[in-house]
Design a protein around this nucleic acid. Structure first.
Lengths: 220, 220
DNA sequence: GCGCGGCTCCCCCGCACGGGGGAGACGGTC
DNA sequence: GACCGTCTCCCCCGTGCGGGGGAGCCGCGC
């Protein structure tokens, strides 16, 4: 019985690293990747992973919101493993309060990473350092965890990329966007590629879905 | 100063007919088409038509909701001309109450159609038969015009097409949808083509947008 | 019986899309 | 001055997508 893992991190490099480490294990299978929390819920529904390894800081939807969204909307949700760069990242505590099952430092050694995934998959949620777990517990519930959301949202998209994403979400083709913005189609293609990379989307459709799911655009 | 018209009708044949009739006029230009109300608001924003010629009965979002959506969300909205098959179509009154500027029978002669578009573009909203206008006025506001919405929504999409649209709205490719539904990719392509035709969408991205805009799928 | 719509699958074909490169211009920072 | 990020545009290239046909099977209704 292999452990199915979904990777969510806005840095392709980190995703590639995690994939390499995890795929080397016979009992772990990486079933999917996303570069933004906005894409997590549909992917969880589609792929039914056992574990979601999720970054906290992401361009459209951060790991806190994504964790809440998964737990709120998915029946029998996967375990959620928060991936972070720092021990004392406040957003990590937010994610843990939101229901995440544990956390993992990006600089952990491969063996630790594998160990963490296996532990969390079996329900042993406390794989993070005891000191931090205590901290998280002591943290209690003070500030609403998503107050910083506005600041994080779209953080990595440039102004121009946001323009392009908005037009993509209206159903315009690259050529039409080029006409709208008075630039060449090659320019639009560059922006679209950058957007897809930052959102972890495979094509423009997935990018538009992320735009809706994150509230970047909203139904009428 | 040409009159820019947006055509919204779920029957491609009707759209083609209207386009042929209207494009024959030097002062009228058809700037776009859609086959469902769900696509209207983005298109109005993009194309800035002077007149929207809109059918009442459409698969995802009917003309009543679409009219309300346009008037509610667009600054300096276009004139809305309701296109219908019957004089005594109750939905027409709903659309008129929702703020449509007039209506047009599909069986009208070309000259009448052209005349109607010109009249409405100039602000003369009452181009429909006096008897019907009186009826509409007498109708007052009784039942909420969209109570029948649920019955109309998706009326033209088959069960299988709804399945496919749902998966499209999760960002799956044709091949992935085929795997999900245990059918061939050619089958999926057939369904996708049918969906695009029924929704008046040009590509899967526009179809997904319509799915969100109509509430067929909703952001988490 | 026949017709019809829904579902399935097949062909050919053109093209927009997206990946993977690179490059020049501009403005800000160090 | 050197550096970097953004925005702009260019190349090549593979392929998924969507249009336009057709066809067989099934269940339902007339």
């Amino acid at each position: 019985m292999t452990i199915k893992v979904l990777l969510v991190d806005d840095e392709p490099l980190v995703r590639a690293g995690l994939r390499a480490v995890l795929e080397a294990q016979p009992d772990i299978e990486v079933v999917g990747e996303a570069a933004d929390g906005a894409a997590v819920v549909p992917l969880v529904r589609s792929l039914r992973p056992d574990v979601v390894a999720m970054d906290v800081r992401m361009p459209l939807m951060d790991g806190i919101e994504a964790t809440q969204a998964v737990l709120r909307t998915v029946g029998s949700p996967p375990k959620i493993l928060v991936v972070t760069t720092f021990e004392n990242d406040e957003y990590v505590y937010g994610a843990l309060r939101a229901g995440a099952d544990g956390f993992l430092l990006k600089r952990a050694r491969p063996a630790e990473i594998v160990h963490a995934v296996r532990l969390i998959a079996e329900g042993d949620s406390l794989l993070f350092p005891a000191a931090v777990r205590d901290l998280a517990a002591a943290y209690g519930r003070d500030r609403p965890a998503n107050e910083a959301h506005e600041a994080l949202v779209r953080a990595n998209l440039t102004d121009r990329e946001e323009d392009v994403l908005r037009l993509m979400a209206r159903g315009l083709s690259n050529a039409e966007i080029a006409g709208r913005l008075i630039v060449g189609t090659e320019t639009v293609k560059s922006h679209v590629s950058a957007i897809l990379a930052k959102l972890g989307a495979r094509d423009r459709t997935q990018a538009v879905i992320a735009a809706y799911e994150s509230g970047f655009v909203s139904p009428t």
